[in-house]
Amino acid sequence: MKVRLVLDYSINEGVLQPYFDGLRAGKAIASRCDHCKHVAFPARSSCAICHADTVSFQPLSGCATVVHRSDGPAASHALVRFEGADTQTTVALSNPQSTEPFGSLCKPPANQTPNKTANQINDETAHRPGLWLCLGTSPSTKESNDV
């Protein structure tokens, strides 16, 4: 038998919405534990270190240093450390042809959603909060590099 299932989810982001709003705008918003001051990016709703249940949101510069990167034919990913964060972060690389060991957060590129209509691409790009890094850029230059 053949079955085709199409599901359109609308997922509430809860207390992490400021972090996701930041990503959609290409900005890095970390969580900072109100108790032990641990800074997590991606943001957390509670502290992984002291388990405090209240965090505040804190903008980061968006600059990150590559710790390890993995390349494949379709995509490249990296484990990076964002400036000001106490955690590392797994990201997708928007310009994997670059070998620079640093970069800055950027908006998800629209061409990462193949086989979709223009409206679907625009809708997903506007709403799907991915962690993308543009290598070789600092926040002052990245606006011109954002896709």
Binding site: A92, R128, G130
Partner: peptide, 26 residues
């Protein structure tokens, strides 16, 4: 994995295991 971070970014299983393996190798 974390569907809201790695999942939304498209960091798939092989990429995550690869990054972990690189750290182990180092």
């Amino acid at each position: 994995f974390d569907a809201w971070t790695d999942g939304m970014t498209g960091v798939d299983s092989t990429a995550l295991y690869a990054l972990s393996a690189l750290s182990f190798m180092a």
